[in-house]
Design a protein around this nucleic acid. Structure first.
Lengths: 232, 232
DNA sequence: ATGTTGGTAGAACGAACGTTCGATAAGCCT
DNA sequence: AGGCTTATCGAACGTTCGTTCTACCAACAT
């Protein structure tokens, strides 16, 4: 009640202006803190990262942090909410005007992967700390995720109908998410393809499988066992 | 040095007998503790679970636990090692004698999913706490995982060669792992199909994609939005 | 000059952490 | 009966945890 923590476009429930000239000083500082915190959460996990770690990363005193948010949990909430809202927003923009069902699915994949690779740390936190948030915060994030799932399911259903196919949309969609999300465990920007190429390859596998040879695949350099892999 | 912690087939590096009449009392007790600990780690995460939580779950005093292992980290190591070794072992058995490349890939999927669904909690711990283990323990688990990956890559390469296909094996294999591993985030035994059916569906997607309608698919009951889903 | 506000930090809070210690039985070998 | 070994425990260790209290300072308004 007597807490000084501000409301703002980033942190709070209010402020009509989403972006008032790049945001207030408060917003900009908070955004920087969120950035650093994301990195730390990604490296050490939510429980494993201490407020002292975050303070060190932000180069601000432990107490100073609490001027910008009320608790460690709220901090995680802010990170997750911001990250996910951005993905959803971009997806809606890109989907507009495209009619072909297969193309729409490919756009979904491309959008997902692009954001994933550009914000690997943030999405790792989003994915890895899925069930940390309690009650209020948790269900809000869960709602955004459900909406995202619903959109993907719709796209796949459109495709199914357009081509008169028969398969479980649920399994297909969740398999697709699995393929895409797993990326954060193995992708290395120095050696693996970029989002566009990966989206094409994964789109091919999802839509046509590995058994049907597809044209125009850029021949991959043979890699003995290669860099990082994760099988679980 | 003066630690009383025993060596045994489960916990230690020694003991010639792998299984002396169902295991010694020590082994059986440790196995039970591992079971309980797996459950707790699964629910609260490795960092989030305290030794006191584990003590409560095992109905043994905090101090009593340390009779069976030297540290929390070693406990996680024991869980991961046992779980993964079992999967690998079963896979090798099943692969024996099967020649057809496509069938061999399907066996891999089936084995993976079967173990996944039968030991959901254990594999969640294995997957979720991937990079918690330090140095010695970590690299030993990593080695087992790499071997598992290598086998899968080999199977896919055999298939590729047999059918004269052209695609990136690395991307294909890692996509396949993604599809399969993601299951632990959404599978609900009360509503989703069993391992065999799922293995067939995922095998179909991986091998032929969603666009090629496959025969004999048991018509799925339409589900509005269904139970748990995870998109990240 | 003086008061108000926005931002920062040192020091401390009680609680919880992983781990260890020393004691205590019960079971077995002689 | 006496002495090991196995198994278990309560209590405490020192450390770190998330959070809060209070004071301080710079900037601006009066």
């Amino acid at each position: 009640m007597a807490s000084p923590t501000r409301s703002s476009s980033l942190s709070g429930r209010s402020s009509t202006r989403v972006s008032a000239g790049e945001g207030s000083r408060f917003d900009r500082r908070l955004a920087k803190i969120l950035e650093h915190a994301t990195e730390v959460f990604c490296d050490k996990g939510y429980e494993g990262a201490s407020m002292r770690d975050l303070s060190r990363a932000s180069r601000m005193s432990l107490a100073g942090l609490y001027y910008y948010f009320d608790s460690k949990e709220k901090l995680l909430y802010l990170i997750q909410k911001y990250t996910f809202s951005t993905i959803l927003e971009r997806l809606r923009e890109r989907l507009e005007g495209v009619e072909d069902p297969e193309q729409r699915v490919r756009i979904f994949i491309q959008n997902h992967l692009e954001y994933f690779l550009a914000n690997q740390k943030a999405v790792k936190v989003l994915s890895h700390e899925d069930d940390v948030l309690k009650n209020g915060y948790g269900s809000e994030i869960a709602a955004i995720k459900r909406e995202y799932y619903r959109i993907c399911l719709e796209l796949v259903d459109e495709l199914k109908q357009a081509q008169g196919l028969e398969f479980s949309s649920r399994i297909a969609v969740l398999s697709l998410f699995g393929m895409m999300n797993w990326i954060y465990t193995w992708h290395n920007p120095r050696v693996d393809a970029d989002a566009g190429e990966l989206a094409r390859e994964m789109g091919d596998i999802f839509l046509h499988g590995v058994c049907r040879g597809r044209g125009g695949s850029v021949p991959q350099a043979k890699r003995a066992s290669g860099p990082k892999v994760r099988v679980m």
